[in-house]
Design a protein around this nucleic acid. Structure first.
Lengths: 340, 340
DNA sequence: AACTGAGGTTGTCAATTGTCAGGCCGAGGT
DNA sequence: ACCTCGGCCTGACAATTGACAACCTCAGTT
């Protein structure tokens, strides 16, 4: 019970010898079991206390703390809140029903401690991990939330899959915010092939864009895009602080046309109104990327989006049928349902 | 930073009002979100402290503790130590190599605090959860370890699957130890169909057994058994304290014959020697259940077994090729490898 | 041989978490 | 209307856990 003196600890391993006569523990230096793993298992599965583990392993408790911390950092352990339950809470059910979604995850409100995009990204990572299977062709657009998702995606071996960039590249004001980076990141986590679109998202005129589109390599990429069976994207507002503007993809001036036509949201660079109608404009002729019609052709279309501003944008996307699965948070879900 | 007084908590919800003006929290009594789920998510995903959660939800911290505990009990959350890592630790690798196993999980030693069957059962539950997919036909034999596995199997929807009892029923000295119960339990957890074998495991003479075997319903069940694509079973020793005797399936007298022929273990009521040869005897002609030849015909054959006595029994089973996946613990793995 | 710096371990202390006896409140019985 | 019981919540206390600065140890360098 009292803290053991530590002066004598090297020589003996009291817990081991008494408990298991026939299987001597490995002598120091010939561990057959990774100590991180050993500690993690005993802690999380067998619910021993850190002190018990420390005795068992013959190190101090503080060391065990470190082991456990490292194991967490290396993602040796995962804590999962059963996603199907979040699927079933009332708000999610209502959204599913109202918009014919196949799946909807509504994560609880956290009192506004962290940005919704971060929390939703993490939730999305868990969801994606769960539904992806080897052989999938996953299209990925970009967004703040998609990026956090990518960063939190657990590692998983899907060697026969590929991750496809569905919108051209653009220079971003923020770090790591380009579509290529999202795609590459996700592909790496999945041990999958990454297929990026070697072209800018927006060109200065339609003729150039058309010429580029006729390039065989680009044609090939677009064939890939149309072969996606799953698609992951964020939803952007058209407000001034929105990422589409901050990233330089679209200038505020250019957006004026769309806004006067009633634009409320942007998916993969394409504007739509609150009814979900795709608003085609001059921008569209200068962009390289998936169209909203293409989006609807993908079997599983997963949107990760949420936050106080995004109500209308998400509502429009839902009405337009651009999604089959929505991952959002509780305030946002309430807002959307309140707008009906 | 200092602990906030709790006397004023009913009236206000400080974190909420400032952070999110447009979405009032539900008034008490109209929670749309299950409080267990809410608390669990904030705790495990957003890493808030229990006090923060208590403030947010407007209850005392102790209540949050209870919520979290309940959520754990109801399996709302899962803590998973990445199983592929246990697959890769040295002992597991050596066993895989030595016996041509497809998978092998070796869980770390816990100092002998809990019975191996309990710990291995839990590990097996996690493994099974991971490899099962909808549509599987899972055969299940019985055993102490299989039962703990069943109890710890997380809930999972596999409506198109079935769980098949591969050995007849028997009265047991222990509670819940019959094959039917294991099967029913697992089936319930998986929302799958449970197919039990309505016949005793052992009859008093071979003629009766043969007559029963000719019954169409029994024939049907056996067709099912042969259609299994996965099989789950425990491994029993032939020592006097073994479950096969305690359960009354086999009498100690009857076992004498097998033991003199060199029996070291029992799988689904069938004896085999240390080389893995099936020892056929008079018992076998009076039993209703899967044979060891049938076992080998199943594509995935998962054994959960471990403990100081079981070394030889497992070794024989490995040599006989009755397993494709073994889940055991570190001392047992060492013993087996030491016996080579 | 003495120095130095990186990597890993340790003891201490504050923060967080688990426990438990007692209090509150509503349902159902008298 | 009053009482009793059971379930849920609370507050205070004990145990566990996390953070951190100091400390070893050992290999490479002077």
């Amino acid at each position: 019970m009292a803290l053991r003196s530590r002066t004598k600890d090297k020589a003996e391993r009291p817990a081991a010898t008494e408990a298991d006569g026939r299987t001597p523990l490995p002598r120091p230096g010939e561990y057959l079991t990774d100590p991180l793993l050993w500690a993690s298992w005993l802690y999380h599965h067998d619910e021993l206390t850190q002190s018990q583990i420390a005795d068992l392993m013959g190190v101090s408790r503080a060391t065990v703390v470190n082991y456990l911390q490292q194991a967490r950092d290396l993602h040796y352990v995962k804590v999962v809140v059963r996603p199907e339950l979040l699927n079933s809470i009332d708000l999610a059910q209502q959204l599913k029903q109202a918009f014919g979604l196949a799946e909807c995850m509504v994560i609880p409100f956290d009192g506004g401690m962290r940005p919704p995009s971060e929390r939703i990204g993490r939730a999305g990572a868990q969801y994606l991990d769960q539904i992806l299977t080897n052989g999938d062709v996953l299209g990925v657009a970009w967004g703040r939330t998609v990026l956090t998702l990518a960063e939190n995606l657990p590692e998983k071996a899907m060697p026969d899959s590929c991750v496809v960039q569905v919108i051209g590249s653009q220079r971003s004001a923020y770090d790591g915010f380009t579509a290529e980076e999202c795609v590459a990141f996700i592909a790496r986590r999945l041990h999958a092939r990454s297929i990026s679109l070697h072209a800018p998202a927006a060109l200065s005129n339609a003729a150039l864009r058309d010429a580029l589109m006729r390039e065989p390599t680009i044609q090939e990429q677009f064939a890939r895009i149309r072969s996606c069976n799953k698609l992951l994207f964020g939803i952007c507002t058209v407000k001034a602080n929105s990422l589409v503007f901050a990233s330089g993809l679209i200038s505020v001036d250019e957006s004026k046309y769309y806004i006067t036509k009633g634009a409320v949201g942007v998916i993969a660079g394409r504007f739509y109104d609150v009814e979900g109608n795709w608003l085609r404009g001059s921008m569209d002729d200068r962009m390289i990327g998936i169209t909203l019609d293409d989006v609807r052709a993908v079997p599983a279309r997963i949107a990760v989006a949420g936050g106080p501003d995004k109500t209308d944008a998400i509502l429009g996307a839902l009405r337009g049928g651009y999604l089959t699965a929505l991952i959002t948070d509780e305030p946002t879900a309430r807002n959307i349902l309140g707008r009906l």
